[in-house]
Design a protein around this nucleic acid. Structure first.
Lengths: 199, 199
DNA sequence: GACAAAAAATGACCGTGGTCAATTACAAAA
DNA sequence: TTTTGTAATTGACCACGGTCATTTTTTGTC
């Protein structure tokens, strides 16, 4: 399998496309992102766009993934939560970003586990990094504050499941009075502490 | 607000559109569903389609919702699970249907909580019925087999969160060797039993 | 039955994502 | 420098979802 490294010109074009797209999103939001506008701003033909990105969604996934990486990095370098009830606030910036917009949320869902093998999918990688971080948080508080009867990775993935759940409900007409963070909190409390045995 | 009941003709047209769509889906799957084909088969103009359905997604949501209703009804009339480990198998048919296809899953996600107020959205209603059913299952096994320290509705909604999680991972290249049911099981075990206290 | 008003249906038209055969720019070999 | 194979780009074109002014059908009233 022979793979040549791309020419400088190609890299420059790629950068121009990404920059143009980012500008449009910053100015008018994801919903207003049009391929034709992107190529016009980047001064390239439409076909060029699709030689750089499989489809429009991949470009959006790239922009969203970059942003999520930054947000996650900031979360990771902040002090870790000391109690279960501090988890939701700690995650809040990520929640806010992913739930800002239907379009963004859909892309996140679509690419979150999409192709965990491809390291080119930033969102997918980001989700795996989230799991690692959450698992660290969990281990740090085990076994006193957090249950230790379940694999930490499973606990971390469960947190992700509840994050998605909480954001999805955000778009539900019935629940939009409560904010995402508060909606997430009860799930995490139940999931992570598991106070009393049933049996 | 004056709302006239529709003419017979309109109802007939609606039915023809739905039937045509269902036929196409049955023959070629959701991914192959094209509005132009639907209207051709139903012998109506394109504009008529959009006077009956806000967009193509609503039609798909209708078809999917109908099917999910049938599946859920069958699940509901089967004997309820007696142990936590029987939950995933009991839910399996629903898992299989929602995870059959990317297109289906995306529609389900999009409309699951979409507008819980509108009773016209079958999927949304179906999800609420799922919660009711799961809550019944949970209550039946409390407090011996299932934890009773958490609101049953929250437990039921949590099950939904894990269902989504398990199906989403189904589309992930890394995990597609394990089947959905087996992927769901460990989450449910941890979520519902919560065997030992940490504190 | 003739007429008016409302409901239903029509199809030409548009916007936008995506394709691909043809063209141009580049880099290494001669 | 010229040649030549390949990478990169181009833009006319297509597919398909969705719109809306216009036309046809139905219904209620006299």
């Amino acid at each position: 399998m022979e793979t040549r490294s791309p020419q400088k010109r190609r890299l420059a074009t790629h950068q121009r496309l990404v920059d143009a797209a980012q500008d449009i999103v910053t100015e008018s939001g994801f919903a207003a992102l049009r391929v034709e506008d992107v190529v016009a701003r980047a001064k390239v033909a439409k076909g060029t766009f699709f030689s750089h990105f499989e489809d429009k969604d991949r470009l959006m996934a790239l922009l969203i993934g970059r942003e999520m990486d930054q947000i996650l990095a900031q979360i990771a370098q902040a002090p870790p939560p000391d109690r279960v009830d501090d988890f939701a606030p700690a995650i809040a910036p990520l929640l806010a970003y992913m739930g800002q917009n239907r379009v963004v949320f859909d892309i996140v869902i679509r690419f979150s586990g999409a192709a965990a093998i491809e390291t080119t999918e930033l969102i997918s990688v980001n989700f795996m990094e989230q799991v690692v971080l959450f698992a660290q948080w969990v281990e740090r508080l085990q076994p006193n504050t957090i249950r230790d009867d379940v694999d930490t990775t499973l606990l971390a993935e469960g947190i992700q499941a509840f994050i998605i759940q909480a954001i999805a409900l955000e778009f539900c007409a019935l629940h939009n009075s409560v904010n995402v963070e508060d909606r997430l909190a009860p799930y995490l409390r139940a999931w992570l502490t598991a106070p009393r045995s049933a049996q």
